[in-house]
Amino acid sequence: MKRCKALVDVGRRQFLRGSATSAAGAAAAAFVAQPARRAQAAARVDYPSARLANIADLVVDEPFNIAYPDEGSPGVLLKFGHAVTGGVGPDGDIVGFSTLCPHKGFPLLFSAEDRVFNCPGHYSRFDPEKGGLQIWGQSTQNLPQFVLTVDDAGDIHAQGVDELIYGRLSNVLA
């Protein structure tokens, strides 16, 4: 993947959204979220349960664009072909992550070569095989991972998120 030329040109202070190389695209067609609610008194927010894809949709090492908990929060599902941290499915190899860098919200680029998310903003790198651990970078969080389940039909559902998603002060918007 070539680095987004636009980002090089406009410099740090002007971020161009929607680059062609972004792994984080618009919400996938498979996204069918229930209406999000925010419980006023709960210590944690209530998440929608959303069907994101079916296992049959996934190809090893190819990010599958989704959005969760709503269309404004891009992410991907990844299938690795071997069990990984937090992985679900029969092989424990399917994970889902937010693809907004928790440092400054730049869209992360997935590199299949070493199975790493790279941030074109400030060079941060996250390992989706290790629960989104920041390999190196300026984010003060590891990458938010979606809590997934897989039902008998192979449908993949998201049930929650384990860190605050960039750009929102509540993972489920009020």
């Binding site: 971020f15 869209p107 929102r168």
Partner: peptide
């Protein structure tokens, strides 16, 4: 309006570490 997703480099977001 914080009920909307904020864009990259927004001033209107802070991480739990902040």
């Amino acid at each position: 309006d914080l009920a909307e997703q904020q864009g990259a480099e927004t001033e209107a977001w802070y991480s739990p570490s902040m």
